[in-house]
Amino acid sequence: MEEVKLLGWWVSPFSRRVELALKLKGVGYEYIEQDLAHKSQLLLEYNPVHKKVPVLVHNGKTMAESLVILEYIDETWPNNPILPRNPYDKAMARFWAQFIEEKCNGGLWKIMWCKDEEERGKLVEEASQCFITLEGELKGNKFFGGEEIGMVDIAANFIGYWLGVVQEVSGMELVTRDKFPVLCKWMDEFVEHSVVKETLPPRDELHAEFEARLGAPSWKY
């Protein structure tokens, strides 16, 4: 019998990426919730380099970093692929997943914690350019992967769900329907997907978590 364990944290979009991929594949797994304020010995043992979630354990082998884990899952359980099989299309999916990880999500985290208004304004402008780029990449499709959720959609889960909560708490207005109608339509499709719904943390609890962490500053752009 296969051993599949996932060490995660309910707030983490990175943990939820892995859960989503496993559920899309129909892979059974044991979920082990982690308290990142008091890191368990198990987490430190399984991920001694970064000491963070997610960590996937498969038949005694451990791996970290959500995008790396997603590729491993897709290669290990080939049914319901989340990456294209065509080499060029696969390379492009990897490119856009990395773009979202570094440029979009990375920029959004910086905005959330930036205290300097001038610097935050520059970061907001950079984020807006990223969203414009993503709108163009959707190309009229339901999902980045076409008609089915794929690697790029999973990588963008923070934008799809968490960002809306952050905007409510902070007062930021980064992604609105008038500014980014195509991206907002994708967000609607993403959160309404039956499997995605199973992996999303309760909105009210997530709202309370971010409110406590961000101190509810009033950021308007």
Rank of each mutant, 00 (worst) to 15 (best):
K39G: 00
G146A: 03
E147S: 13
P202H: 04
M151C: 08
Y31D: 02
P202L: 09
N105I: 14
G150Y: 14
W113R: 10
C130Q: 15
E205R: 14
Y29K: 00
L214M: 13
G28N: 14
L70C: 07
L134V: 02
E147K: 14
T62R: 08
V195P: 07
W113S: 10
D74K: 02
G28C: 07
F95P: 01
L70E: 04
E102D: 15
R94F: 09
P81S: 04
A216Y: 04
F99R: 12
F99W: 12
R16L: 00
K23H: 02
S194T: 10
T176Y: 05
E65N: 01
H207Y: 15
P87V: 03
I100K: 08
V18Q: 05
A64T: 13
I100M: 11
I154K: 00
T199P: 11
L6T: 12
Y72M: 02
V53L: 03
G8C: 06
K103F: 10
E102A: 12
N59W: 07
G145S: 03
E137A: 12
L56W: 14
K61I: 11
V55R: 01
L22D: 10
S40P: 02
S12C: 09
L123F: 02
V124P: 03
C114Q: 13
W113A: 07
L22K: 06
A93G: 09
Y31W: 02
A37Y: 09
C184D: 04
W96Q: 12
S194F: 02
K110L: 14
E19N: 01
Y46H: 07
Q98M: 10
P87C: 08
H38S: 05
V175T: 11
R17P: 00
P48Q: 03
E30Y: 08
V191S: 09
Y161I: 00
Y46G: 00
I132F: 09
P84K: 10
P87R: 06
K39F: 06
H193E: 12
K139E: 14
K110Q: 15
Y31I: 01
A37E: 12
V196N: 06
L43V: 11
V18K: 02
